[in-house]
Design a protein around this nucleic acid. Sequence first.
DNA 1: GCCTTATTCAACCAGTGGGTTGACAATGAT
DNA 2: ATCATTGTCAACCCACTGGTTGAATAAGGC
Lengths: 122, 122
Amino acid sequence: MGDTTDQLDRAFAALADPTRRDLVARLAIADATVGELAEPYEMSFQAVSKHVKVLEDAGLVTRSRDAQRRPVHLNAEALDQMTQWIERYRREAEARFSRLDALLARTAEGDGNRPTIKEKES
Amino acid sequence: MGDTTDQLDRAFAALADPTRRDLVARLAIADATVGELAEPYEMSFQAVSKHVKVLEDAGLVTRSRDAQRRPVHLNAEALDQMTQWIERYRREAEARFSRLDALLARTAEGDGNRPTIKEKES
DNA sequence: GCCTTATTCAACCAGTGGGTTGACAATGAT
DNA sequence: ATCATTGTCAACCCACTGGTTGAATAAGGC
């Protein structure tokens, strides 16, 4: 359990940084080396290297070796796991709201107070 | 622009904490007060209050007032914005992989080296 | 072997984050 | 008015993070 938790911790934390989100956005288009990734930013090359490491530790990217280069590759599966988590609760919440809306609509219509309502809430 | 960025920063950072993800999971089922939310955890009441504030600043929850209580309500829209962001790039990446897979499959089939291939990569 | 390219590691600094405890504020009940 | 309930604010501690610079490693080119 701690395993999955840690992974989600790291994944969400990784995407909490705008630079790293930008890296992900660019890696969605094409794999790239750290050097290529670092080029557009003001910050030092090493800083970007660190950012990439954070993404890697979060499982969001993987790396292979090609001579001196270590091309960075986006891991779509990790992104999928994140949406899985979010969507589960979003759907739960929305389902609940819809039910509530329906309830309120029925009550407001004036033909309310039917005893069919048994959504215990306390 | 900084606006949306900040919001995503905060939202992802908020969900990077396991306690806060648990809060979200519970709020998906039902609204709750800070007191109710704090009850199951070992940590102090104030710590949970802080966590809720982080979720609120991230736009993930909203709060109303009911006498002394300030019930916390999950904001499904904020969750949706997060999935929007993630899914955009996941889809881009996956589309690219599919294209690449198809390319490799064609090449491997032996009827390869058709000049239709012009995915310049260098 | 020596030089270049690409990348990481190590040490450091300032800022932030999660936790604590203790005091304060807001609202309702008596 | 006083008390109880519910929650926030403030100050503090320690760990972690994002950034820096400088040195080290890894792999190829000559």
